[in-house]
């Protein structure tokens, strides 16, 4: 995965576009254009998810963020006075820029200093094959053969990174059952709450 040239090129181009788009979102004077730039950033992040073998998350990102959230924001922008140059800076602009760049360097420092676990440190071959979906074997001529894994019988035999949708589903209803219920509760209370807030009193 790490050695794939096309994936690397796509990653660098897309992440450059993400950072450029995010800067445009926070600096644009025209809020509507900012909202469209935001949806562009969302699509690029979905591409990053596709590169990371998270197809389900990428599709959900497009469905919820681009299809619903950014359309809602663009919808709300039409109600604002002075759309064309309505997004003004507060007086703390320079201070916040300094603070955010400081935080950025701190985050980079921490991520570089910490020793993260790496996939190479897994020594159990079955576990690795269950994740990636195949075994590596060296043939006689020295090249590497890839063998399809049949690790477990209950649906995970393709490897959880290759077939992530199935594994996300099964962990949502086993490990994360209570969080899932809480999310449902939050969603319905947000729905009812926003309807209550926005409802206009009927004139008698």
């Amino acid at each position: 995965m790490s050695g794939n040239f096309f994936i690397d090129i796509t990653f660098w181009v897309v992440s450059f576009l993400i950072i450029l788009g995010s800067f445009y979102v926070v600096t644009a004077r025209n809020i509507f254009r900012g909202a469209i730039g935001l949806s562009f950033v969302f699509i690029c992040v979905a591409i990053i998810f596709f590169l990371l073998n998270a197809e389900f998350l990428g599709v959900v990102q497009i469905l919820v963020y681009v299809g619903a959230v950014s359309v809602l924001i663009a919808f709300a922008v039409m109600f604002i006075k002075d759309v064309v140059d309505g997004s003004k800076y507060s007086k703390y602009r320079l201070l916040s820029a300094f603070l955010c760049s400081f935080l950025f360097f701190v985050l980079i420092f921490i991520s570089q200093v910490t020793e993260w676990n790496s996939m190479d440190s897994i020594e159990n071959e079955d576990a690795l094959a269950g994740l990636e979906g195949f075994y590596f074997e060296e043939s006689e001529s020295g090249s590497i053969l890839i063998k399809k894994a049949e690790v477990l019988s209950d649906g995970v035999n393709k490897g959880v990174f290759i077939n992530s949708t199935l594994s996300i589903g099964s962990s949502l209803i086993s490990n994360f059952l209570i969080p899932l219920q809480v999310i449902g509760f939050i969603l319905i209370s947000a729905l009812i709450g926003s309807l209550t807030i926005i409802r206009q009193r009927r004139k008698q």
Partner: peptide
Amino acid sequence: LNTALSGHVFGVFIISIAAAESALALA
């Protein structure tokens, strides 16, 4: 093996919370 995908599950949770939050905020 499913614990390897906890990050994806957190992503799904964050996305649904963000949708609820933005609807409420726009109201």
